[in-house]
Design a protein around this nucleic acid. Structure first.
Length: 590
RNA sequence: GGGGUCGUAGUUCAGUUGGUUAGAACGCCGGCCUGUCACGCCGGAGGUCGCGAGUUCGAGUCUCGUCGGCCCCGCCA
C-alpha cells in the first residue's frame, strides 16, 4: 500500500475533523470529472466520502486521477476540508466535508463491473450469484450481513449472560429416519457406509443435557436435501438451544427476553412481552394455519353446521362426507370484478380447492351470486349473520376436506390482506402457538408420524388417548410465529426410556429398528437423563423479517439457486473417477 | 414429479399481424467542461434475440424440444 496506513473509514469524518491529515482506502463508486476538478465518491463497508482532485493544487495527482474508473481500489492521503456553503450533501453522513487529495495510490484497477452497484437496478439472480462478491459490495446487501452479525452477537451475549455454553456438535454424523432427506457423505475408510450431514443437532443436544451441560446453545448450520423455496435453502442456520430441569414456561420467558434484547440491539425497537399465545386447534380454526398472521382480521368462519341441510348440493354433500364448509368475509370488496373473482378461484385451486363460491352483498342484505338460488331466505340470513355481512362485502366459501379448506382459506386470507393493504409492515407481531398434536396420520406410509419429532414429550393428561385415538394426543411442543412466519419451534423432550419406547411403538417403529437407529439415545436415557427441552430458531428467516426482504438468499452471503447450485463456484461439480473409486462409488448414470 | 413466468447490447427493458439495416435508457470508449454529488454537453463502439429442430418465400415474433433464473404445489419444520 505504498507505505500508507488507513486512518479513518469512509464514514468517519465530519466537520469536527476539518484540517486533519487523513488517509482513506476504498473503492471508486462514482467519478465526476469536470475537466478541471474531479470528484470521486470513495466507498468502503462503512460509507461514502467525497474526495476532490484539483489541478491547481496538485497537477500531477490530478492527472493520475484522470484514469480512475468504477470499482478501482485506491488509497488517498489528504486534508479534510469543509465543503463550500450550499455544497453540502445531506444524504451522506460525511456530506459536510470532502478530502483534498495530496497523494493518490492506485492499489488495483478493475474491469467494468458486470452490473451496476445501484440498489434500484434489479439484476438477475444468476448474475448476482455468479459475481456475489460484487453484489455484496452494494450497501444494502452489506447491511444485511452486518445485521446478521448483530443478531448473532446479541444472541451470544444474551445466552452467555444466562449461563449457556456454546458447544459444537458433529457435521459428519449418522443418517436417521423421520424428517427430511439427508445429505450423504460416503466414507472412504468404511466401504459402502455413509455419514449424513445433520438436519439439526437434535440428538447431540439432548445428549449434552444428559452430560450435565444444563444450558447449551449453538449457532449452527443444518442441511436438508429437499426442494428449495424463497425461504428455504439446502443449508441454513439455526440458533439451537437446549435446557435441563425446565418446563414450557421457562422456554417462553427465556425466548421473550432474547427477542426483547435482540430487537432493542439490532433495530432499536422495544418489544412488549409476554407474547400472545394461541393453541394449535384455535389457530387452525380461526386462521386455517399453525402460523397465523394476526396483524389483521379476515378470520375464518365455520358454516359447516349452518349449511348442513341447505339446498346447495355441493355444500351439503361435503358436510355429509365429514368435510367442512368455511368462509371469509372480505369487507368492502364488492367492487371485485368477475376477473378478480376468477383469479382468486384459480389461486385457491392450487391448494386443492375445487371451487371458490362467492357472494356479493348488496343493499338490504340482498345477495348477488351464482349460488343465491340454492338457499332459502332463512339460510341466507343465517349465513350473513354468522359472517357479519354488510352491504359492500364479498363472502368467500370453500367446501372440502378440512385440510384443504384450511389451507385454501388461509392462503386466500393472506392474498386478500396483501391486496387490500391490511398488513402493517412496521409492526412485529409475535404469537406462541402451543399444544400441537403429537402425531398425525401419514396416508402414504399408512402410519402415524411425529408432528414435531419422535423425541417430543406428550402431555400427561392426553396419554390415555394414545392407544385408541392417537391423533388426539397433544404434545409439549411450541412454535414462535412472527408476522405469519414460523421463526422457531421446539418441545419438552422425553427423558425416560419407558415413555420413549411407547412413543416409538405408536409411530410404528419396532424395537429392532429403534435399537438400530436410536440405540445410543435409548441407552443414554437409562443413564441419568434429566428432564430437558429446547427450541431452535431459523436465523435466516428471522433476518429476512428483520431486514424486510422477500428471499432468504438476500441475508446469506453465498446462497444457492433454486436448483441448489452455486453459479460462483459451479458447485455441485463432477469428480474424478479416482475419487469415486476411493469412495467405493460407481458412476451408474453414465 | 407438476404448474406458472421470464430469457433480446455490459445492465434494465421495448420490439405491432411473421416483412427493409433489431431500438431506448443507463453503462462503456473518445472529446469538451473548475464545484459536482445519478454532474452536464458532443460523438462513437457494442447483438449467436439462451440453445436445437420445425413451419414459412421470410422467424426476435408461430410450433415442438431443451437449458437456465425466479415464484408456487407436492416435498420440507
Amino acid at each position: 500500500m505504498g507505505g500508507l496506513k488507513r486512518s479513518h473509514s469512509c464514514n468517519d469524518l465530519a466537520v469536527d475533523n476539518v484540517g486533519e491529515a487523513v488517509t482513506l482506502m476504498g473503492w471508486v463508486l462514482r467519478r465526476r470529472d469536470h475537466g478541471g476538478v474531479i470528484f470521486i465518491d470513495l466507498r468502503d463497508r462503512w460509507g461514502i466520502t467525497q474526495v476532490v482532485f484539483n489541478p491547481e493544487i496538485h497537477a500531477e495527482v490530478h492527472a493520475k486521477a484522470h484514469q480512475l474508473r468504477s470499482e478501482w481500489v485506491i488509497a488517498i492521503q489528504g486534508r479534510v476540508e469543509r465543503r463550500p456553503p450550499d455544497m453540502e450533501n445531506t444524504n451522506l453522513k460525511t456530506g459536510g466535508i470532502e478530502i483534498r487529495v495530496d497523494t493518490l495510490r492506485i492499489l488495483n484497477s478493475s474491469l467494468t463491473p458486470p452490473f451496476p452497484l445501484d440498489e434500484d437496478v434489479e439484476v438477475s439472480e444468476n448474475l448476482r450469484l455468479k459475481y456475489r462478491y460484487i453484489d455484496l459490495r452494494r450497501p444494502f446487501m452489506a447491511s444485511h450481513l452486518i445485521t446478521r452479525h448483530k443478531v448473532s452477537r446479541a444472541v451470544r451475549n444474551y445466552l452467555d449472560e444466562n449461563n449457556f455454553l456454546e458447544i459444537e456438535t458433529p457435521i459428519l454424523t449418522r443418517s436417521t429416519p423421520e424428517g427430511a432427506r439427508d445429505y450423504l457423505v460416503p466414507s472412504r475408510v468404511n466401504a459402502g457406509k455413509f455419514y449424513a450431514l445433520p438436519q439439526s443437532p437434535q440428538l447431540f443436544k439432548q445428549l449434552l443435557m444428559i452430560s450435565g451441560m444444563d444450558k447449551y446453545y449453538q449457532i449452527v448450520r443444518c442441511f436438508r436435501d429437499e426442494d428449495l423455496r424463497a425461504d428455504r435453502q439446502p443449508e441454513f442456520t439455526q440458533i439451537d438451544m437446549e435446557l435441563s430441569f425446565i418446563e414450557e414456561e421457562d422456554i417462553y420467558t427465556l425466548i421473550e427476553g432474547m427477542m426483547l434484547r435482540l430487537f432493542k440491539e439490532v433495530l432499536n425497537i422495544e418489544l412488549a412481552p409476554p407474547f400472545a399465545r394461541m393453541n394449535y386447534e384455535e389457530a387452525i380454526a380461526r386462521f386455517g394455519t399453525d402460523r397465523p398472521d394476526t396483524r389483521f382480521g379476515l378470520e375464518l368462519v365455520d358454516l359447516t353446521e349452518t349449511v348442513r341441510d341447505c339446498g346447495f348440493n355441493v355444500f351439503q354433500s361435503v358436510v355429509k362426507k365429514g368435510g367442512l364448509v368455511k368462509s371469509i368475509n372480505a369487507k368492502g370488496c364488492a367492487d371485485f370484478s368477475r376477473k378478480d373473482l376468477d383469479g382468486l378461484t384459480e389461486y385457491v385451486g392450487q391448494f386443492g380447492a375445487r371451487g371458490l363460491a362467492w357472494v356479493k352483498v348488496k343493499a338490504a342484505g340482498e345477495w348477488q351470486s351464482p349460488i343465491t338460488k340454492f338457499f332459502t331466505d332463512e339460510e341466507r340470513e343465517a349465513i350473513s349473520s354468522a359472517l357479519g355481512a354488510e352491504e359492500g362485502d364479498v363472502l368467500f366459501f370453500v367446501a372440502d376436506k378440512g385440510a384443504i379448506v384450511h389451507q385454501a382459506l388461509s392462503e386466500l386470507r393472506l392474498d386478500l390482506a396483501r391486496r387490500l393493504g391490511l398488513i402493517d409492515k412496521t409492526f412485529f407481531n409475535f404469537v406462541w402457538v402451543v399444544d400441537f398434536p403429537l402425531l398425525e396420520y401419514d396416508h402414504e406410509q399408512k402410519r402415524h408420524t411425529a408432528v414435531h419429532h419422535p423425541f417430543t414429550a406428550p402431555k400427561e393428561e392426553d396419554m390415555e388417548f394414545l392407544e385408541n385415538d392417537p391423533g388426539r394426543v397433544r404434545s409439549k411442543a411450541y412454535d414462535l410465529v412472527l408476522n405469519g412466519v414460523e421463526i422457531g419451534g421446539g418441545s419438552i423432550r422425553i427423558h425416560q426410556k419407558e415413555l420413549q419406547d411407547i412413543i416409538f411403538k405408536a409411530l410404528g417403529i419396532n424395537k429392532e429398528e429403534a435399537e438400530d437407529k436410536f440405540g445410543f439415545l435409548l441407552q443414554a436415557l437409562e443413564l441419568g437423563a434429566p428432564p430437558h427441552g429446547g427450541i431452535a430458531f431459523g436465523l435466516d428467516r428471522l433476518l429476512m423479517i428483520l431486514t424486510g426482504r422477500e428471499s432468504i438468499r438476500d441475508v446469506i452471503a453465498f446462497p444457492k439457486t433454486q436448483k441448489a447450485t452455486c453459479p460462483l463456484t459451479e458447485a455441485p461439480s463432477s469428480v474424478s473417477r479416482k475419487q469415486l473409486t476411493e469412495l467405493y462409488l460407481r458412476p451408474d448414470w453414465e
